[in-house]
Design a protein around this nucleic acid. Structure first.
Length: 209
DNA sequence: TATGCGATATTCT
DNA sequence: GAATATCGCATAG
């Protein structure tokens, strides 16, 4: 039931925030780098919700499947920021999705955050996501945004700054990284640009192994 | 577990 | 008007 207010200690708010100079410029390297790191969102009331990043997808410069492919527009502006900013968009009439901008300013590229292993604020995530199993709270990009209450309001925010949404160090050493094709796209479908922690039950897509 | 399908809003054509 | 970096429910096996 939702009455589990056994407030677990907030792990993520004690983690060191990532500095921009630690983030790789290269989109693929950034996508790999982010596996195992922590994403934290503190909303009104100071409640922290966080998770371990277990799945990412790279959308490098000149990628036909990337939202920046047709050039700079008002809606994809955040993809053109320097690395470490949030690009949030709304798709399919129901889901927000978050990217971490990559590469240098003026270059449109980013890393889609596809799945998290919940850490802090599980009760709050459950409330936002309805009665869902722990495994499904943030398994998929739309679910991740919903669980963390990520929407257009945080588009363009600096994930290496002092704002309410940020990237932090890993809570523990990560497992090895597996690679696959990306999910849900129709162009450049064969490019091996999806990365996930091998064996994690919190990864989206068909059950692994 | 796997597959299929409808819903839904924003963006670009 | 078409397409979409998805989700949740339904159904079958």
């Amino acid at each position: 039931m939702s009455g589990s207010r056994a407030a677990r200690p907030a792990v993520a708010t004690r983690l060191r925030r990532l500095r921009r100079d630690e983030l790789p410029f290269d989109t693929v390297r950034l996508a790999r780098y982010l596996i195992g790191k922590t994403l934290v969102h503190v909303t009104r009331g100071g409640r922290a919700v966080s998770g371990r990043i277990v799945e990412t997808e790279a959308y490098p410069p000149r990628d036909p499947a990337g939202h920046a492919f047709r050039g700079h527009t008002a809606s994809n502006h955040s993809l053109f920021l320097e690395r470490g900013f949030a690009y949030v968009y709304f798709a399919y009439g129901s889901s927000f999705m978050m990217n971490v901008s990559s590469d240098r300013g003026g270059v449109g590229a980013g890393v889609l955050i596809r799945a998290l292993e919940p850490l802090d604020g599980v009760a709050l995530m459950r409330r936002r996501r309805r009665r869902t199993a722990l495994r499904d709270l943030a398994r998929g990009p739309g679910r991740t945004a919903a669980a963390l209450a990520i929407d257009k309001r945080v588009d363009g925010i600096d994930l290496c700054g002092r704002g309410p949404l940020w990237l932090a160090d890993a809570v523990r050493r990560r497992g090895s990284i597996s690679i696959s094709r990306r999910i849900g796209i129709s162009r450049a479908v064969d490019w091996p640009l999806r990365f996930y922690e091998r064996g994690s039950r919190f990864v989206s897509g068909p059950a692994l192994r």
